[in-house]
Nucleic acid binder design. Structure first.
Lengths: 231, 231
DNA sequence: CCCTGATAGTGACTTTGGTCACTGCCCCTT
DNA sequence: AAGGGGCAGTGACCAAAGTCACTATCAGGG
């Protein structure tokens, strides 16, 4: 059990190069929590109680608008940490978090984490690195929202998926969507209907075959061309 | 001269609580550069050579799209630092920077700054704080782009200006736009024409009086209502 | 086996955003 | 005084985004 916790800690970039002893010390100050799919970890504006690490499953960090629309800022899988920032600057959470699947997380209270950082200065540097990559991703989101259409964002997402976990077949590259259209829409910064429509259209244009949540990319180079054309 | 440099350093949050001696040491490793209005400090993707501090003037950090549109990420005035991140993670600049006015900046090379951070660990913590507030601002931009219309963003901007440096008059609150419509459009993530049109429309609706770059907010509460309605 | 709730597809429509082309204005330079 | 460059306003379009309402499908539970 505690072993398991140690393994998770070791896998997170933040604590990658600590000694066994240090990991054990940290593990002792760690608690575990489970969340069911769709369950809520915290809401935007909640005061920050500590740092989270994903042990298994996936967590969605998102903004919620007054009218109920969501905009995903990040999806964190096993080994990722999140909410590092409010832990440091003492502010509230700038966004909400919910479980995309049944998920297990580790939790370290603000105080414990801050103390740990004081004792291990290089962890502080790691925090900067992690926050830095997060910042780059946010800039990427801004770029997409500001410069591209829903269609282009959807294509970009499919291409990313195809790259990451697509399996080649005789028809093309098979990709599995692991979320509902609703969830995809939240990632793309749009609404369900547009995801549905754009998928249909891409199919009609011959780039894809869509069958439920399975997609076969039939014309990868064509898609790549579409992504950048007439921007 | 060097005195002046010290004063600027003292004013930047990053180095706020250093001793006189430390400031002098840092000032010695600092160089000054001047940029004319519209001049270019660096482009997106340039490799990062060091940290910038604004001494006077204003710097615009922005993304540039393939089609030539710009999206402003931040405007930094005197006392602000920027490009902290690539200095740390060694990556390239994620965005471009240009001078909004004639501007003087201080420059510290990557190596010098990293060494300085190693000698002064609390500067590292400051970096986290600065990067943190930057991250919060980026999240705010994403929220605006994803959830609001150009009209609402424009209203929000005017309200911010009115708050920050509006002067009351008998007609209403006087606000001065310090930039062209083009620049405003880049901040709002849209194009010149929409800024122009929306300003006219707000005037026609009686919320504002526009006269060149001077705006008189006639109906502040009304504007505030408009900002949130029918989101 | 039926009911229910979540998910997806789609037509019709409205609003918003963006493009293009052109005009007018002001200021600076020559 | 004339010309030119940058900036602003606007009409006419067109395309993209979003809304609403409805239907279909499917999985699981009672």
């Amino acid at each position: 059990m505690s072993n398991d916790t140690g393994a998770v800690l070791k896998k997170t970039p933040l604590f990658a190069n600590l000694t066994e002893g240090e990991l054990r010390a940290l593990a002792a100050r760690t608690s575990r929590k489970r969340f069911r799919q769709g369950e809520h970890l915290f809401a935007e504006g909640d005061s920050c109680t500590g740092l989270f690490l994903v042990a298994s499953g996936r967590i969605r960090i998102f903004k919620l608008s007054a009218s109920g629309r969501e905009q995903v800022l990040a999806v964190e899988g096993p080994g990722s940490s999140f909410a590092e920032l409010p832990v440091f600057d003492g502010g509230n959470y700038p966004a909400a978090a919910s479980a995309l699947e049944d998920t297990e997380v580790l939790f370290i209270s603000r105080k414990d984490f801050q103390n740990f950082c004081r004792e291990h200065p290089d962890v502080g540097l790691k925090v900067i690195a992690v926050v830095g990559s997060r910042l780059r991703r946010l800039v990427g989101i801004i770029e997409e929202l500001s410069f591209t259409t829903v269609r282009q964002r959807l294509i970009a997402l499919i291409l990313r998926l195809a790259q990451a976990d697509g399996t080649p077949s005789n028809e093309g590259i098979r990709v599995e969507l692991t979320k509902s259209h609703q969830d995809l829409a939240a990632e793309l910064g749009t609404v369900r209907e547009l995801v549905s429509r754009n998928l249909s259209r891409l199919q009609a244009e011959g780039f894809l075959d869509v069958e439920g949540r399975k997609i076969v990319v039939k014309d990868l180079p064509g898609l790549k061309r579409e992504q950048t054309s007439t921007e």
